[in-house]
């Protein structure tokens, strides 16, 4: 660890402990970015970077991100799956910075899937 100090971490720890119970109960939304080779080559890292920025800016503490491997659909990369609690997963394709921002605001925060970018709603095995 080069410059990152123990005090910085301790400050965050003390502050977060107070609001910690919020996250302990599980997450309201999970966003999975497909990080297979094709996805990465098509811009999946940038899509994830935008997501992380949006989560930080909106202080959406109940949204988590994860990555998955190849989804077998190279041509539609970058792809993302949005899962809201008790809702069927929605898979989006051909994403870029602007589209993922829109999906984050409308679907992840607002609860309304963005149909124009959706590939599949529900089962992962539709295609």
């Amino acid at each position: 660890m080069a410059r990152l100090t123990i005090e910085d971490l301790k400050k965050i720890k003390d502050k977060q402990k107070a609001t910690f119970s919020l996250r302990e109960g599980g997450y309201r939304a999970k966003v999975t970015v497909h990080m297979g080779t094709c996805g990465i080559a098509a811009g999946a890292r940038e899509v994830m970077t935008v997501l992380l920025d949006e989560i930080a800016q909106s202080k959406a503490e109940d949204v988590i991100t994860t990555t998955s491997g190849c989804a077998g659909l190279c041509a539609r990369e970058p792809m993302v799956t949005v899962e809201l609690l008790n809702k069927p997963p929605v898979k989006y394709g051909d994403l870029n910075k602007e589209k993922i921002r829109e999906i984050f605001k409308e679907h992840v925060l607002g609860g309304n899937p963005v149909e124009k970018y959706a590939l599949v709603v529900g089962s992962e095995t539709t295609y």
Partner: peptide, 8 residues
């Protein structure tokens, strides 16, 4: 993965 931790 708390945003503040990721930031530092």
């Amino acid at each position: 993965n708390t945003p503040e931790v990721i930031k530092i």
